[in-house]
Design a protein around this nucleic acid. Structure first.
Lengths: 302, 302
DNA sequence: CTGTTAGCGCCTTCAA
DNA sequence: TTGAAGGCGCTAACAG
């Protein structure tokens, strides 16, 4: 193109405040420059970290990301992928869900497959058994490692705040942790994946009596922090009265008192890896999980 | 339309996995069903709460939201509104920024105005002096109230972790808090708006000597939590050695030890109000700020 | 390298 | 109520 002309066009465009219409581009090309992301709850640090990674990676590829929140309802999730499909995004990234209802899962898979059928790409974060590219979140391995580590520290009697009974992530963590210790858990309390549910679960545990329970494992940090609050409110010292461990290593885990032992996950990297996977970009190997020992679970002399 | 035919069409659509192409709709209609949201950092609880509100409200209106993160860089912010403008969103919601560089602000305003010129709507969250609809975040009022309350509790000598020097939000909070107390601050430390910056600022304050400082006000909770960690690491008791207060009332503020006194903001409601404002929907009155007194600032006997 | 053309999938208008 | 036609802003394939 003529240099001078291009110059004139550009200045004119700037003066008029022109911006290419991405929707029109998308229609003409048959593919948009959008990545759609589905999370359970954007205010949850677990998901906002993932979202940060997704957005960062997408922007690096010149794409913009649209986010929808499922509120942990599988019906809503299905409805939302249908809606998002309407945008003809280049890729759909799904984080969360993993519900065990077979019917719901089947419709979700069907919807996603229809999307793939029209040339879309899908990437999942941490839900192994679905037939799509997946960035694994190591639930079993980390929980086992945590269990072994704490067992090695001398902990024996334990309880688990196990989260939602129908959430595969929660079940995997529960089972792997319990399996790593010599005896079965003295108690397993279910509830939502939230701080308040952790508080309530811990409270009910206290009310039922903590006899023999040296350690409480909450299957995520948010619940563990709720448990810490409950213990604090009931005047039970941590780790003196009972030790507490969580999972995820969200930023606040190190800022509560006592600092929370947990399993570190590279959530932001996982988000970035998911878009790389979906966009066919080179995907970095994810670092493996590691146990982060902090003050909430000191070595136990016995 | 013929009932039976409509039925047949719908089932056929379902069978084929058809979804209306929203981009094509957008092109044909000249307006998409998208709300664009600009935040500084989606992993920051301040912004993820706002985002949650924006998404919730947008979904209620049947719109989808695309999020971009500015990383607190005004150049990036300008570049991003230009990019997002390409989507022809129905509205652009900007949370954050408020930088004091006049040139940057002017270009941002120009870009936003160009968007309005093409029929777009814009709503800002908490940045009073720009010529667009704004959901106010009460920085001065809350900080003054906090200052008065703590003054009433008996606090005198104080320091401020003031955040970025060029951020209006931070400056407003600093000035209003200081203005509410009889004496000027004994120290004002600047730094980023992050946990680690709060930690560092507090550390430098400790190193400089805490003589006469009874209270440290961090202009946001994230920094206050960093300050708490620094004090803890240096073995200084809170509130015994020094009291600490923050701003925003992020969820973790109540879960740190000691629980953090702060100013409660309805962030999610603010996000929802912004989309209501932008979409011309009925906008709920925002509740006014309120001081939340917790254990980090007990009444001071003197 | 330039200018022209058809067409992307949908909406809207108008006529039937 | 239904069908046909034109156009939204852009891209891609083509001829000049």
């Amino acid at each position: 193109v003529n240099e001078a002309l291009a110059e004139r066009v550009h200045t004119a465009a700037a003066r008029l405040g022109y911006t290419p219409n991405l929707s029109a581009q998308a229609v003409a090309r048959g593919a948009s420059s959008t990545v759609a992301l589905l999370v359970s709850d954007i205010a949850d640090p677990y998901f906002s970290s993932i979202a940060a990674g997704v957005i960062r990676a997408a922007e690096r590829e010149g794409m913009v990301v649209t986010i929808a929140v499922t509120d942990r309802k599988s019906a809503r999730e299905i409805q939302l992928v249908r809606l998002l499909r309407g945008q003809r995004p280049r890729a759909i990234v799904v984080a969360g869900s993993r519900f065990t209802d077979d019917a719901d899962r089947a419709t979700l898979v069907a919807e996603l497959q229809a999307f793939v059928g029209t040339g879309g790409r899908v990437a999942l974060i941490g839900q192994g058994e679905l037939p799509f590219d997946t960035v694994p979140i190591d639930n079993s391995g980390g929980a086992r490692l945590l269990g072994e580590t704490l067992g090695g520290l001398g902990y024996r009697g334990f309880a688990i705040l196990a989260g939602p009974a129908d959430l595969v992530t929660a079940r995997d963590r529960t089972a792997a942790f319990a399996g790593a210790l010599p005896h079965p858990p003295l108690a397993v309390v279910h509830g939502e994946f939230s701080r308040d549910a952790g508080y309530d679960a811990m409270t009910s545990l206290i009310d039922a009596g903590l006899d023999g329970i040296e350690l409480v494992f909450a299957v995520n940090d948010v619940m563990a922090i709720g448990a810490l609050a409950a213990l604090h409110d009931r005047g039970i010292d941590v780790p003196g009265g009972v030790a507490v461990a969580g999972y995820d290593d969200i930023p606040t885990a190190r800022d509560v008192t006592p600092a929370l032992t947990t399993v570190h996950l590279e959530l932001e990297a996982a988000g970035a890896a998911a878009v790389a996977l979906a966009l066919g970009a080179p995907v970095q190997e994810l670092p493996s999980v590691r146990v982060v020992l902090r003050e909430s679970t000191p070595a136990r002399s016995r």
